[in-house]
Amino acid sequence: MNLRRIDPGKKRVAILISGRGSNMQALIQAAKAAGYPAEIVGVFSNKLDAPGLDYARANGVPTAARSHKHFASREDFDAWIDAVLEDWQVDYVCLAGFMRIFSNGFARKWSGRMLNIHPSLLPLHKGLKPQQQALDAGDAESGCTVHWVIPDLDDGPTILQARVPILPGDDADSLAARILVQEHRAYPQALAMVARGEAVFP
Rank of each mutant, 00 (worst) to 15 (best):
residue 2 N to L: 14
residue 4 R to Q: 10
residue 12 R to T: 08
residue 17 I to A: 04
residue 18 S to H: 00
residue 18 S to E: 08
residue 24 M to A: 13
residue 24 M to T: 02
residue 29 Q to G: 07
residue 31 A to M: 02
residue 34 A to M: 04
residue 34 A to I: 11
residue 35 G to L: 02
residue 38 A to W: 02
residue 41 V to M: 06
residue 42 G to Q: 10
residue 43 V to F: 07
residue 45 S to G: 12
residue 47 K to L: 14
residue 47 K to C: 14
residue 49 D to S: 03
residue 49 D to W: 04
residue 53 L to C: 03
residue 55 Y to K: 04
residue 57 R to D: 05
residue 60 G to S: 03
residue 63 T to N: 08
residue 67 S to G: 09
residue 68 H to I: 05
residue 68 H to A: 08
residue 70 H to C: 15
residue 71 F to P: 00
residue 72 A to E: 14
residue 74 R to C: 06
residue 74 R to N: 08
residue 76 D to L: 12
residue 78 D to T: 10
residue 78 D to V: 04
residue 79 A to T: 10
residue 80 W to Y: 10
residue 84 V to K: 12
residue 87 D to I: 06
residue 89 Q to W: 06
residue 89 Q to L: 15
residue 93 V to W: 11
residue 94 C to K: 07
residue 95 L to F: 03
residue 97 G to C: 00
residue 98 F to N: 07
residue 98 F to S: 10
residue 100 R to T: 15
residue 104 N to W: 11
residue 104 N to V: 13
residue 109 K to P: 10
residue 112 G to D: 05
residue 113 R to W: 10
residue 113 R to I: 12
residue 113 R to A: 13
residue 114 M to N: 15
residue 114 M to F: 14
residue 115 L to W: 01
residue 116 N to W: 12
residue 116 N to A: 03
residue 118 H to D: 08
residue 120 S to Q: 08
residue 123 P to I: 10
residue 126 K to A: 13
residue 127 G to D: 04
residue 127 G to L: 00
residue 131 Q to F: 15
residue 131 Q to T: 11
residue 132 Q to W: 12
residue 136 D to I: 03
residue 141 E to D: 11
residue 142 S to T: 14
residue 142 S to G: 08
residue 144 C to P: 07
residue 148 W to G: 03
residue 150 I to F: 01
residue 150 I to K: 12
residue 150 I to S: 01
residue 152 D to I: 12
residue 154 D to S: 00
residue 155 D to K: 08
residue 156 G to Y: 07
residue 157 P to I: 00
residue 161 Q to A: 02
residue 162 A to E: 13
residue 164 V to P: 12
residue 165 P to R: 14
residue 167 L to W: 10
residue 168 P to A: 10
residue 173 D to W: 07
residue 174 S to Q: 06
residue 177 A to R: 13
residue 179 I to V: 12
residue 180 L to I: 00
residue 180 L to S: 11
residue 181 V to L: 04
residue 181 V to S: 01
residue 183 E to P: 03
residue 184 H to K: 06
residue 184 H to M: 08
residue 185 R to T: 05
residue 188 P to R: 00
residue 191 L to E: 06
residue 193 M to L: 03
residue 194 V to D: 07
residue 197 G to W: 11
residue 198 E to T: 14
residue 199 A to W: 00
residue 199 A to P: 02
residue 200 V to H: 06
residue 201 F to N: 05
residue 201 F to H: 15
